[in-house]
């Protein structure tokens, strides 16, 4: 059980950093500063962070930035990155065109 208000009190206010403009998620263009700010706005899990900022939700689905985001969130929360649940992987494993996906598992065959 975690009380968000206690966490926010513990980590203190957002303090700007020199490298806040660094792009962390390149697919969705999310910066380090945005991620750090979101932690102070109450986004304390990777799940919330992805939904709030879209980091890791683009074409590569977080394969590049997943670890980085986790590190930044953990540092801001002053915890070990291992304490953060990783993002859930979702089907399909790689981006697939609709015309290809539509061929599977039905009577539809060639829909178009």
């Amino acid at each position: 059980m975690i009380c968000v208000n206690d966490i926010e009190k513990e980590i203190g206010v957002f303090v700007p950093m020199e490298d806040d403009d660094v792009l962390v998620c390149r697919c969705e263009e999310v910066t380090k500063g945005e991620i750090r700010r979101a932690v102070h706005a109450g986004m304390t899990t990777i799940e919330e962070m992805r939904r709030f900022l879209r980091c890791g939700m683009g074409l590569c689905q977080g394969q590049t930035c997943g670890k980085l985001v986790k590190g930044i969130v953990a540092a801001e929360l002053k915890i070990n990155p291992l304490e953060l649940e990783p993002a859930v992987s979702r089907a399909p494993m790689r981006p697939v065109e609709m015309k290809v996906m539509g061929k599977d598992g039905g009577q539809g065959g060639d829909a178009v």
Binding site: G58, L59, Q61, R90, P95, E97, G102
Partner: peptide, 9 residues
Amino acid sequence: LKDAKLVRS
């Protein structure tokens, strides 16, 4: 949309 890629479900 036939060539649009699905990224997630």
